[in-house]
């Protein structure tokens, strides 16, 4: 049990993050869930690369055990990607708030449906408005 500790944490974060993304209607909360979900992947990569007592791979006689540096490097890249995704997601949330006045998914859908229903009969006036 204890030797799988890191995996248990990873899987918990993974499932919890995914749950938040799917179950929450608030755009910000969805992004929080997405970040948690991505964080679990960082752990998935880094934990197996770490040896207890291991150090960075410095070639010196006093260090015998090294941790694998490659997963760390990979995850550094993944963190950058994650941040970029989060930033873009937040930017979109801000823009959505500006044009819809809300960041609740169901309200946005309702607003879109209202617009579509109002436009249903004829399209000619809509063009003037769009212009």
């Amino acid at each position: 049990m204890i030797e799988h500790f890191s995996y248990i944490v990873t899987v918990f974060l993974m499932v919890a993050g995914l749950y938040v993304v799917i179950a929450r209607g608030n755009l910000i909360k969805k992004l929080v869930g997405l970040s948690i979900f991505q964080t679990s992947v960082y752990l998935l990569y880094i934990a197996p690369g770490k040896l207890i007592g291991g150090t960075a791979p410095i070639l010196a006689p006093q260090y015998g055990i090294y941790s694998n540096p490659l997963p760390h490097v990979l995850i550094l890249t993944a963190i950058v990607v994650g941040i970029a995704t989060l930033a873009l997601g937040l930017a979109l949330a801000v823009r959505i708030r500006e044009v819809y006045g809300t960041i609740e998914e169901d309200e946005i859908l309702a607003l879109d449906h209202q617009v579509e229903a109002a436009q249903e009969p004829r399209g000619e006036q809509r063009e003037e408005k769009g212009a």
Binding site: L27, K30, L34, T85, I96, I108, D112
Partner: peptide, 9 residues
């Protein structure tokens, strides 16, 4: 915007 957000998620 909403479509892009959904695609992002």
């Amino acid at each position: 915007l909403a479509a892009s957000y959904r695609y992002l998620i």
